[in-house]
Design a protein around this nucleic acid. Structure first.
Lengths: 194, 194, 194, 194
DNA sequence: ACCTACGGGACGTCCCGTTTAT
DNA sequence: ATAAACGGGACGTCCCGTAGGT
């Protein structure tokens, strides 16, 4: 690993929370210069533009949250238990990147314009969803989940409610909404568990 | 009604979709000048700053979506039917302000900083929630809703899932996620209906 | 004379030096309001626009300087003496309107644009010139002025040199240039005198 | 030569005719932005204020007209011929900066206030005058000009009449006045020529 | 004739993203 | 990689000329 590559990674890791907290439009290159201690020229050596850097930073942030939220799931055997694990992990483990869920942040900011960022978050959601769908399918196959359960709907419900509740919680500055989401999702999973 | 007040309202109505689509940081006063046909002096007479205007525009936008989403609910008698009506209306009636749900937009952009906008959206959510809580309480009292149903949790679940699913739908450019949310919420309401 | 007409004249007389000193573009209606003690509404009752008021003010100023510069000339008999009288009067009598010769001021400011003011000053110069031409013609007819003297050239020379020298004098803050002009013009008149 | 300096010079050259035609008060920075194609930030980087830019633009304009009016004079030997050359050049060569003689324009606009511009034009006139005075003095010394001729008076007469006649000509839209000035000045020079 | 409201637009500051020279 | 230069454009203040209402 060259020294340049190291710097590049350091910039991304430093920029990620800044973009995540302030948004693409709200964050300035100066903010990132201040945080990294670099100068303009030093930064532009590694990234061609603000959008470029933001794309890499968000990609990094999204990958991080997906990684953290799924980590440790492999040691859980039962499919429903895996889903419960995901829910629990989402709601109890703090985001590794301050500023809330980067997927929601980017999705909301990029929904009218900025196709680059949009594509990024789209891919993130697709991955996340695919993970849940796979668990449900496995559960159906293994007879752990009640027949007739729709995998995609389960994914949409889980992701939608988790993200929505997180937004409410962050807004209210209280964990009430996420706790309620957990209870509701637990109930839903109870209902499909065999 | 003076001419100035008319102009003021016109500015708010024109600015609302711009802020809702581009966000507070992403929208420029010039965008609003262009859209209204006014010049600097004409606009700043009515609003002291960009933040001021944005606050009024978002307030207007939030009030509009709440109004549209609840309108017509009074003619529905049964409590559960009212909740179903709310869900259905949210998912079928397009936002009167282009750019997605302003509540989610502001909540996400203002979650780190901008206390003014944050207070606004907080109040919006509180109002929305209070409406659902009241329906559930009425249903409990009237015996239309199963005892033990938690009103706040119902509100958090409904709002969270609706908003979360809407985000996914907008991101994917498909109505799948909101359709799934509707089915899930219908199931939840089935379960509490007497 | 009605009271309104009196006010109108007072406004013109007050505005004339302001426009003459600051120019049309450089003077503001506020300046005139301050000087007259009137309020906006009171002023716009009498003049439809700034340009309107300026036109009247300059017309007044130009008429004033022409009047002052020619006054008393009737009691001078000989044509050449009359010309000398004009020169002398121009150079010794202070402008009744502070700010320099309004003819030059308007001519210079209005030379690219503002046809209204331009027409005004044009007429002023035409009148001034006609006066000189008439004196020269009378002198030729009466045998007081040498044959072959070109009346228009005499007018252009006198007006040009007087105005040009006045400009230099005002610029330098010294009477040197106008004194030199007087000597030069005296020499010219000596040469045509019989 | 840096790129910035180039831009700076381009701005001055572009601004000069605008200020010369519309005057300091009558020209707006927007006019200059439009003409240069620059934006606010690009312009204010090079000049601290409108007054600053106007000063440089007028300085440039005044230097230009003095340069153009004197150019080629060196190849004329005889003092009187040199003066004739100056007169002729003034009256036949168009101003390199549209909008009339910048010296007269600034002198007239700045005569009440704006000491910065006033100082500029004062210096321009002083230079111009000094040139003529020197020629006359040389002529006296070399015996080409009649003894007793006052150098300063000659300068004031020439400059005054040229500028005054130019004003009349521009006002009337005809070359009559400048032609008359040339004839008058030729006569004056005839009279001092040995 | 006063007073205030109205919209236009000027001027200027600041900072942003980018480029260039070192 | 630093540092300064560059041009773009945002925000905001102020005042201007004008129009109405009192």
């Amino acid at each position: 690993v060259t020294k340049g590559e190291e710097t590049r990674q350091r910039i991304i890791a430093t920029a990620a929370p800044i973009f995540n907290m302030q948004g693409f439009a709200g964050a300035s290159m100066q903010d990132i210069l201040d945080a990294t201690g670099l100068e303009k020229g030093g930064l532009y050596r590694h990234f061609a533009s603000k959008e470029d850097l933001a794309a890499e930073a968000f990609q990094y942030a999204i990958a991080e949250v997906i990684r953290v939220r799924s980590s440790g799931m492999d040691s859980v055997e039962n499919s429903v238990a895996r889903l419960r694990y995901l829910v629990n992990r989402f709601l109890t483990v703090a985001s590794p990147i301050p500023g809330g869920c980067p997927i929601m942040n980017v999705a909301v900011e990029a929904d009218d314009g900025n196709p680059k960022l949009r594509a990024l978050v789209r891919k993130g959601v697709r991955t996340w969803k695919a993970g849940i769908v796979k668990i449900v399918r496995d559960g159906l196959r293994k007879g752990e989940i009640r027949k007739g359960t729709n995998p995609t709907r389960m994914a949409n419900t889980m992701i939608g409610l988790l993200e929505g509740a997180l937004m409410i919680s962050r807004l209210e500055g209280s964990r009430d909404a996420v706790r309620d989401a957990q209870i509701t999702l637990d109930g839903i999973l109870d209902a499909v568990e065999i």
